[in-house]
């Protein structure tokens, strides 16, 4: 093992029993790291301070005001929070959003992972499949989807035509309050291209030798998947899970275009971001919208923190 590798081991193993030389070397490396970090993080820090933080703090301030966009915000203390407590639409939108997140994120990830594993096996026409499977993600936010979705999931749509073959009379999926959210979940799962691509990239990072060695030891495919692929892919699975949660909690565009911005029918697809947008831009209550946004941040933050905490038990890092 190299000297630096030794140093690293020391650092990991704890501070006990270091010689003065070792301590000095460690401190030196620390300083070197800090300096380098300042350089490598410079663009990000500049962006954080110069671009990101300002608007965030502004919105935090607005969360405690009554702000109608056209006149000065009025500081109202906790009034917006009080309003949240009695806000029925907020309740409905939380239910819709949570249902959507809890159902669609795991399904989408499972589909993406399954197909990525299948596509990673080097079968013929791989590039073609990969591209075709990614296509819906290219279209996901297009205006065309709104039209198409009604043609597919409408009362006279393709799905019902298909069900009709078996004598089943399906409902107008997009139009019924009980099923509309389901079609959005389908839409979300259907755009599994992004996590799939990330999984594929991740699979390519797993050293080939591990599999060769396992084959030699007589491990079958299933064992290889469980003992090699999934552990080594776990950081990427973790990434997709965290970002999938953050993204779908904020999901806006698809509900917006499919419901024409209403969150209908009867608020059944009123995603949190959509509600907040309606409050801010249609109702000119940007103060309340900002308060809602920070509530969302707290919810997402809690879910993310939970994820990071749980990751200790299942995510495997090589470093």
């Amino acid at each position: 093992m190299s000297a630096i590798g030794e140093l690293r081991t020391l650092r990991r193993d704890g501070r006990g029993g270091l010689t003065a030389d070792q301590k000095q070397a460690l401190a030196k490396e620390r300083r070197r790291d800090s300096k380098a970090a300042a350089v490598f993080l410079a663009p990000w820090l500049l962006g954080l301070v110069g671009i990101t933080i300002g608007p965030m703090i502004a919105s935090l301030y607005l969360a405690f005001t009554d702000y109608n966009l056209l006149q000065d915000p009025n500081f109202t203390g906790l009034e917006n929070i009080q309003r949240m407590l009695g806000d029925e639409r907020l309740g409905r939108s939380l239910v819709a959003t949570l249902t959507y997140v809890v159902v669609s994120v795991p399904i989408q990830l499972a589909v993406a992972l399954g197909l990525a594993l299948l596509l990673d096996r080097g079968i013929r026409g791989l590039a073609l499949y990969r591209s075709v499977l990614y296509l819906p993600s290219l279209l996901g936010a297009s205006v065309a989807i709104a039209v198409l979705w009604r043609l597919v999931f409408g009362g006279e749509g393709l799905v019902n035509a298909f069900l009709g073959l078996f004598g089943i009379q399906g409902p107008a999926w997009v139009a019924e309050p009980d099923t509309a959210l389901g079609t959005l979940i389908v839409l979300h799962v259907w755009t599994f291209g992004a996590p799939m691509v990330i999984f594929l990239a991740g699979l390519r990072q797993i050293p080939r030798q591990y599999y060769d060695a396992a084959s030699t030891d007589g491990a079958n495919k299933w064992q290889q998947l469980r003992k090699i692929t999934l552990p080594l892919l776990s950081p990427i699975i973790f990434f997709n899970l965290v970002l999938g949660l953050i993204g779908s909690f904020q999901s806006f565009t698809q509900a917006f275009i499919v419901s024409n911005g209403s969150g209908g029918p009867a608020d059944s697809t009123l995603f949190f971001s959509l509600y907040l947008y309606q409050e801010g831009f249609a109702g000119f209550r940007m103060g309340y919208a900002s308060a809602l946004a920070w509530l969302l941040l707290i919810i997402i933050g809690a879910f993310t923190a939970l994820n990071f905490w749980a990751s200790k038990y299942w995510v495997f890092y090589d470093d």
């Binding site: 009604r150 009362g155 419901s259 024409n260 911005g261 209908g264």
Partner: peptide, 15 residues
């Protein structure tokens, strides 16, 4: 019926 109406709620005029 209600579902058919809801399906068309707010769609652009062409549809």
């Amino acid at each position: 019926d209600a579902a058919a109406l809801s399906e068309k709620a707010g769609v652009p005029l062409d549809q």
